[in-house]
Design a protein around this nucleic acid. Structure first.
Lengths: 165, 165
DNA sequence: CAATTTATGTCAGTCTTGTTGACTTTCCAA
DNA sequence: TTGGAAAGTCAACAAGACTGACATAAATTG
């Protein structure tokens, strides 16, 4: 039983289980490499990936609320709270009571927070930059397209939208 | 200070920090989606991602040794051993003493192991297949190229090499 | 205005999965 | 043949997820 598109000449060989298996392994190994650089830095600060994620998204959306962060990170509030408490205590994140709604806490990086974010981000941007440069713009566009389809659709809106090329 | 290539007309705008930031977030969200389906299945078996990874690579390389698996997975042998012990105890993996070198253990999936592997793999292949199908073959090629450059170079040899398209 | 809902924070306990350290068995080479 | 290296195992600990219960304050609703 063959796919009709194959019969019409559109090769679907990129959809064989073998190719998909490769994709699965690419995800595994690429993600490992991707997280390895920041992990080394975080070790020196007795922080973990959870702290990095919080710092990253507070940096990208200054003033974001705890609830919004929960939505983005997909962890429990207890888990996020532990991390945020440490970062606030250590003076990397500032938590301001909301003006309009005083139940909300709006989160901002302090100067020290920005410094650590830069350090962490620099290693990851370096890795991405080198990969992008080696692969070229067309490959990067393909990468984006595939990645957006791999993620859960409702998460796409959380992805940074760069100014058009 | 502008890159010479920009002056020569080759747009390097896909290398702006904004674009790289997007790449970083694509990695984060795509990986989360990618692991979410198997995670649900694993919960019912009181297993975690570590078990999935072991099962995956034993399936792909039957007879692989613990040491080889350690190299692929990048964890400590103690960490891997705990996972393997459970899987062996539960009858999903068979561990055979090496014939040439009796220090080595060669790992194989049992029938039950193959069954769980299929179940886990099916959800991930489905996700990849749909993403690949939606993105098309050229995008997939770009995806591969970028992912291979993101990972640590010495890991590339561990990625499944499908038969040519 | 009272009752309910929402946003956040906290305490306690569990689980997975990583770590280090110490140990056994086996192999191999001096 | 013996001593070191390699492969694997056992034990204990830590980080960071999780659930569940509860607390507080502020906003919203009937």
């Amino acid at each position: 039983m063959q796919d009709r598109r194959v019969l019409r000449g559109e090769s679907l060989l990129f959809l064989t289980d073998d190719q998909l298996l490769q994709g699965i392994e690419l995800m595994f190994f690429a993600y490992r490499g991707f997280t390895s650089d920041p992990d080394k830095i975080l070790d020196n600060h007795t922080y973990g990936r959870a702290h990095h994620r919080a710092i990253h998204f507070v940096h990208r959306q200054p003033g974001t609320t705890v609830n919004n962060l929960l939505d983005i990170l997909g962890v429990t509030k207890q888990s996020l709270n532990r991390v945020l408490r440490q970062l606030v205590d250590d003076g990397l994140i500032e938590s301001r009571v909301g003006e309009r709604d005083r139940r909300e806490r709006h989160l901002y990086l302090t100067q020290a927070g920005v410094a650590l974010e830069s350090e962490l981000s620099a290693t990851q941007r370096k890795r991405m930059r080198e990969a992008y440069k080696a692969a070229g713009p067309d490959a990067v566009q393909g990468f984006r397209t595939v990645m957006e389809h791999i993620m859960d659709p409702e998460m796409r809106r959380h992805v940074n939208s760069p100014k058009r090329d």
